[in-house]
Simulated scan of single mutants.
Amino acid sequence: MHILATIFTTFCFAFIAIKFFKPVAIEVGLVDKPCERKQHDGHIPLIGGISIFLAVLAATLLWLPSTLELRMYLIASAMMVFIGALDDKFDLRVRVRIVGQIIIASLMIYGVGGYISNLGDILGLGAIDIGAFGILFTYFGIIVVINAYNMIDGIDGLIGSLSVNTFTSIALLFLLSGQTDYLSYPLILATATLPYLMFNLGFFKNETKKIFMGDAGSMFVGLSVIWLLTMGTQGDSASFRPVTALWICAIPLMDMLAIVVRRYKNGKSPFKPDRDHLHHLLQRAGLSSKQTLVVISFGAALMSGFGIAGEYFNIAESIMFASFLLMFISYALSIRFISRRASFK
């Protein structure tokens, strides 16, 4: 009953926040304007992420016990949303965003002592404990995941669908492990995303009601994902294995890694925006925006399902890790094939 009340409250807060902040965003100019890289009609309010965060803030303060971990998460999230909103409004330089992400990562690492030190038995030689080096590894992991979810946000419904898939998968992993104390966190985040998806995908059949997630939202989602994955895989009360985390957020990670390598080979900045992401390539290969959304979302669900199955049936971590590497290689080759096909159209 408590879970149902939490979910209902979260959904209502998110919906109300969208209705309240939409005219405010238009008034202050917090909107996404069409350009060569952003092909949409009109100026779209960038309030999806702000509404999700406010719903999460309200629901957690109302329903969850006030712990140091929760307080640090909310402070870090508020800072991330603020930096993202500034980026949405003023298009901050990459180094400014990265510095902000490093500062926020420090809250997680030093504020609650949450960092990745155990990589699990991914090589079949025993658990890999990287000790204090895990602090640097965690900084790297936080920046990678935040920007992976930020970079995948390119067509209607994509970041929202991937977010719901990730948070729901984490909730299921907590449930399977019996770690119900943490179950409310991913459920709140998944529920808070649903009203955004309704507006973003045109549930109300009115283009003037459309909103976008914005960098405030995609970076907040990325921070929440890495926070939950670290909480779920590290420490004595770990709920699932580190290798499973790779499968839960496989599509954003693989898309980012593939495009960073491609940009580096072409002599471009890894953070310079372009139209060479997976969703762009699928569209250039002939799929519509809705078909692209379905294909990517279905693929993400399959990968999450494989990761959860591996956890449930206790498949060896080395096999799961090798399978992930094989999947990434297949993904990279497929992207090259799609890119070449698209270039001939």
Rank of each mutant, 00 (worst) to 15 (best):
M108E: 03
A309K: 06
I319P: 00
P270M: 05
S269N: 15
F240G: 02
S177G: 12
I83M: 15
F90C: 12
L92T: 05
A238S: 14
R275M: 10
Q283N: 03
L46A: 09
I3M: 13
D91T: 10
M80G: 07
I338T: 13
G114H: 00
G222H: 05
R275P: 05
H277Q: 10
L223H: 03
L136W: 14
R336C: 09
L287S: 05
D41S: 14
V225D: 09
F321H: 06
L333E: 06
L293D: 01
I211Q: 01
L62T: 14
E69R: 12
I135E: 13
G222P: 09
T233G: 05
Y331T: 11
Y185Q: 08
I259E: 10
P270E: 02
L189T: 03
P186M: 02
R263K: 15
V94P: 14
A238V: 04
L92Q: 11
G49V: 06
T166A: 15
F240P: 01
F328G: 06
A245E: 02
A192T: 03
K19H: 08
R263N: 12
D255V: 04
R71C: 09
L54Y: 01
V112Q: 03
P34T: 13
V96N: 08
L278E: 05
F199S: 02
G217C: 04
L293W: 04
G49S: 10
D276C: 07
I315V: 15
D88F: 07
I26M: 10
L173I: 07
M72A: 02
Q101T: 07
N206V: 05
F90E: 11
I7S: 07
F199H: 10
I315F: 14
G100Y: 03
G214D: 06
W63A: 09
L326Y: 04
